[in-house]
């Protein structure tokens, strides 16, 4: 597999929720690639649309939400063209998902064994005996001790870390090509988080999967991802490889996030927060969504929405600063030292 090949190409994905208060554009023209065998991080704060993007890939959006348009190409095939029956063959088989809260996403009335076997039964037609054998193998793979015994236990009998391992075992049962992990460690303690993230990474190498890692934690991004898409108000504002993003962040929002972050690995005198708050859906700015909070915004930013443009080296930015139209302070271009977060 060449590294340039993409396993998933999302283009101009739009998902809205139609509420009494009107249409809420949760995902508003999202575009990104997931290179095969790599991990793409989707990072953003609450309400940025990162989870809805993930749910849209598997078409898990239910009323009043609706995927309005765009393309989700998985191995060259547009998933949005498939029927629900065809989609069902893909879910849990070629594309799997793990969720934030293992307690609410495991069925409390079925044993661990029953839940893992279900996958084998649906996708491979395996019976109880063969399914159990495979389930034990999976539990071993995710590092659960005495797996034979765990098979007959219910989710409530397991600790949080164990439950997340069971969920990973379920997700990986059919050896998917793509794993979508939606905040997989947010509900876990940091020592357990370290175990789970390492486990996902090791399994990825062993099974050759691609991963979409959805998180709000920039530390998790730096440690697990190869590429990163930063989302703000339903749009991707920056897409770059992980080193570029952390060493040379360009979008004022990304820079702002990194400057707001209290670090455990070094002392900081002062945090520089982003001013204001995320706009509510009914007062979404017409121009750049970030303009009201951006320290560099000009009239252009407030009036016109910038597009997500290639700026070279596979990096994409949605910001007027990096276009020929920029009419604000020319000094705020990337290479100014005060724009980077280093030092």
């Amino acid at each position: 597999m060449s590294t340039n090949e993409s396993i998933l190409e999302v283009t101009d994905l739009r998902t809205s929720f139609f509420t009494e208060g009107g249409e809420v554009k949760a995902v508003d023209g999202v575009t990104f690639d997931v290179p095969a065998g790599k991990t793409l991080g989707i990072v953003g704060e609450s309400g940025s649309g990162k989870s809805i993007t993930a749910m849209s890939i598997l078409q898990l959006i239910s009323h009043p939400g609706k995927i309005k348009g765009g393309e989700i190409k998985f191995r060259g095939k547009n998933l949005l063209d498939l029927s629900e029956k065809e989609m069902r063959k893909i879910r849990g088989n070629q594309i799997s998902m793990i969720f934030q809260e293992p307690m609410t996403s495991l069925n409390p009335t079925y044993t661990v064994g029953q839940q893992i076997r279900e996958s084998y039964k649906i996708h491979q037609g395996l019976g109880k005996k063969e399914g159990s054998k495979r389930a034990i193998e999976m539990l071993k793979l995710v590092g659960i001790p005495s797996p034979e015994k765990r098979l007959d236990q219910y989710p409530f009998e397991l600790s949080g870390g164990m439950r997340q391992r069971v969920m990973i075992a379920m997700a990986l049962a059919c050896k998917p090509d793509l794993l979508i992990a939606d905040e997989p460690t947010t509900a876990l303690d940091v020592t357990i988080q370290a175990q789970i993230l390492e486990l996902i990474k090791e399994l990825q190498d062993e099974l050759g999967m691609s991963v979409v890692m959805i998180t709000h934690d920039l530390g998790v991004v730096a440690e697990t991802c190869d590429y990163v898409a930063v989302m703000y108000c339903g749009k991707v504002v920056e897409y770059a490889d992980v080193r570029t993003l952390f060493k040379n962040p360009r979008h004022p929002y990304t820079v702002g996030l990194l400057k707001s972050l209290p670090r455990s690995d070094r002392d900081q005198e002062e945090l520089t927060p982003i001013k204001g708050t995320v706009p509510s859906p009914d007062e979404m700015p017409v121009g750049c969504r970030f303009a009201p909070r951006c320290p560099f915004a000009t009239n252009l930013c407030h009036e016109k929405l910038p597009s997500l443009d290639d700026v070279g080296d596979g990096e994409q930015i949605r910001c007027w600063i990096y276009t020929d139209e920029w009419n604000g302070d020319p000094g705020v271009k990337v290479y100014e030292p005060e724009r980077t977060t280093e030092g």
């Binding site: 940091v190 440690e223 080193r243 972050l261 690995d265």
Partner: peptide, 25 residues
């Protein structure tokens, strides 16, 4: 030591000498 080593650091070049604790609390 284990707790501090387990924190993900927002720096891809950070040297991780991670101590993995066994099991849960």
């Amino acid at each position: 030591k284990a707790l501090l080593s387990a924190i993900p650091v927002p720096d891809p070049d950070h040297n991780k000498d991670r101590i993995f604790l066994q099991g849960d609390v």
